[in-house]
């Protein structure tokens, strides 16, 4: 994987943003290293979108400091080295995909040749639709075009908000490969937010988990998932077991999964048996990012 020893690409200190009485970010401190793919996770209202919008200069923070690519937010020279796609992008409906990229290239001071528009259209799988007007595009096609739009200025940093939203499984796989190759082959630092935790685990080197506007957990994916495992129960009654096992317990199919350390297993099993829960199977399952997320956020919904 990518070397993270270089200085941070984003440095956030004491960042707060309030919308009236609602605090979207509450004194967030975060340092994102240069290189690799960095995931930002959090439940609804955790502050991910607000953080991205501040990073891209779309909104101003209430307080705190933000440094992007060595410049303050709003430093156009630094921002020109940053590509982004925030939510599902939209475009002027009368333009074709190629014209959208040409328009954006011109806004960056690049000719279509300098922006390598055809190459990017091919890389995001949009060559066949290059000369179609975007008004008929599906959400997935908009997403692909949005990723190409984020990349035409040859940025050092790319910020992607839900890059696989609306894509079919092959599209998700292609996008994952593209994001990984951007980091590994092109040396681009990619920061992405996604609610597809399995995808994040596959593609990201590091993640930050936000909760209620603060940093709940940050680190390498391999470190965060190390030493954690889930105990998988098949049992009845399920509702009683979920209550007994605490906030990290959740239902997956007919089974109940609970985050636990090895030494906690006898206690958990004893607690279930004493409550007359009938256990038909109990076995250890490998750790994943989802269980870390559930632990850190108390199991609130993912996004």
């Amino acid at each position: 994987m990518t070397d993270h020893s270089a200085g941070p690409v984003i440095e956030v200190t004491g960042l707060s943003k309030a919308y009236g009485t609602v605090k979207a970010l509450d004194g967030l401190d975060l340092s994102i290293p240069r290189g690799g793919v960095y995931g930002v996770l959090g439940p609804n209202g955790a502050g991910k979108s607000t953080l991205f919008r501040i990073l891209l200069g779309l909104i101003r923070p209430t307080s705190g400091r933000v440094n992007v690519m060595g410049g303050e937010v709003g430093d156009v020279a630094a921002m020109r080295r940053t590509g982004s796609m925030i939510e599902t992008p939209r475009y002027p409906p009368f333009l074709t995909a190629r014209q959208v990229l040409t328009w954006l290239a011109r806004s960056h001071g690049l000719s279509p040749a300098e922006a390598r528009i055809d190459a990017w259209l091919e890389r995001v799988g949009m060559t066949a639709a290059a000369d179609r007007r975007v008004r008929g595009f599906s959400v997935g096609m908009m997403q692909r075009l949005g990723v190409a739009a984020a990349l035409i200025s040859k940025p050092d940093l790319v910020v992607l908000d839900e890059p696989t939203s609306g894509m079919d499984p092959p599209g998700i796989q292609e996008m994952r490969a593209l994001i990984r190759s951007l980091a590994d082959d092109d040396g681009v630092t990619v920061i992405l937010a996604s609610h597809q935790l399995a995808e994040v685990q596959r593609v990201c080197d590091r993640v930050a988990i936000l909760d209620r506007g603060r940093l709940a957990r940050e680190g390498r994916v391999s470190d965060l998932t190390a030493g954690r495992a889930r105990l998988r129960f098949e049992l009845t009654p399920i509702a009683a077991a979920l209550d007994l096992l605490g906030p990290t317990a959740r239902l997956e199919g007919d089974a109940v999964l609970v985050e636990a350390r090895r030494e906690e297993a006898p206690t958990l099993i004893r607690r279930l048996v004493e409550a007359d829960v009938e256990i038909t199977e109990a076995r250890w399952q490998g750790a994943d990012l989802e269980s870390v997320f559930m632990t850190e956020t108390g199991g609130r919904d993912v996004r």
């Binding site: 020109r80 982004s84 939209r90």
Partner: peptide, 17 residues
């Protein structure tokens, strides 16, 4: 008003003053 209508300000706003 086009950039408000098409929601395209976010695509260009960071690139210029």
């Amino acid at each position: 008003a086009g950039d408000y209508r098409w929601e395209t300000w976010r695509l260009v706003i960071a690139r210029n003053r």
